[in-house]
């Protein structure tokens, strides 16, 4: 009994260490974002220092970072919007009106999620260069729509399938047409999981790096590209500014952590019952 007890304590210590490893690097980066350069470039890491907002002020005041932020918001936002507008109805049709192609369509959609980005980026670079749309927001939105649309469909099919069939039947008996059933019944009932699916698509394109790196050079550069350029600066590295830009880049995805973990929970809850 006491051996079991000890095992439990050791297990809890390991879990605490793992949790620490998950959080500490992010915490440390955030701390460094509020430090003056002299407090970062110290022989011993400093936990107590006079905080400064200079780094954030500098980052937000810099044209390149601000332009990257605007591009990221517009490109990710538009791609997610198109992905949701087209993807949610498609997912509903796949979940509720199965036919002999349904399985193949789902296979096709999910396989897109696993396409190597470099295999998409190289040909698209040539296509956008030839058509004169290279390095524009439009070409990035179109390209990212491939990712958001596939992701939204893939995650929303199970969400719609979980809507009780009886509710939809009852609405149909009440005289609702098939389109009304989708808009007024299925969409609101599944909305929580659907928001998770859309949030996931957003995080995916917000974080996307390789495709943006190959398809943009100046006008349409997204925030991850701008941040990575800062990290490649030469000798006299402005560490505080770097940390601040990394924090700025990471805030939007982290805002969705609750929604995403809720989606994970509901996905597994149903499998068990």
């Amino acid at each position: 009994m006491s051996r079991r007890h000890m095992g439990r304590t050791v297990g809890q210590v390991i879990l605490a260490l793992a949790a620490f490893s998950a959080v500490f690097p992010v915490f440390w980066t955030t701390l460094n974002a509020f430090k003056n350069r002299v407090d970062i470039v110290t022989p011993t890491p400093l936990f107590f220092f006079t905080p400064t907002l200079d780094n954030f002020a500098y980052v937000l005041g810099r044209d390149s970072v601000f332009a990257g932020l605007v591009n990221s918001v517009l490109i990710s936002g538009a791609a997610v919007l198109v992905g949701a507008l087209l993807g949610l109805p498609a997912a509903y049709a796949l979940a509720r009106y199965p036919n002999r192609w349904t399985k193949d369509i789902q296979f096709f959609v999910l396989s897109l999620r696993f396409l190597p980005p470099v295999a998409v980026a190289i040909p698209l670079m040539v296509i956008w260069l030839n058509s004169g749309f290279y390095d524009t927001r439009l070409s990035m939105i179109v390209t990212y729509t491939l990712l958001t649309l596939a992701t939204v469909i893939w995650l929303s099919v199970p969400a719609f399938a979980r809507v009780p069939k009886e509710v939809e039947e009852a609405a149909r008996v009440d005289g609702y047409g098939p389109f009304a059933v989708f808009f007024l019944i299925a969409l609101p009932i599944a909305s929580r999981s659907l928001i998770g699916a859309v949030a996931f698509a957003f995080v995916l394109v917000w974080n996307e790096f390789l495709i943006a790196l190959m398809l943009t050079t100046s006008d349409a550069k997204t925030l991850p590209i701008v941040a990575s350029e800062l990290t490649q600066l030469g000798r006299d590295v402005p560490w505080g500014i770097l940390n601040a830009s990394v924090v700025l880049l990471s805030i939007p995805p982290l805002l969705f952590i609750g929604v995403l973990s809720g989606m994970l929970n509901s996905a597994f809850k149903r499998k068990s019952s």
Partner: peptide, 15 residues
């Protein structure tokens, strides 16, 4: 435990 994977890869790499 979900935090690291939600971070942009660029951020994780820099951190």
């Amino acid at each position: 435990f979900l935090m690291p994977v939600i971070l942009p890869r660029v951020s994780a790499a820099f951190v």
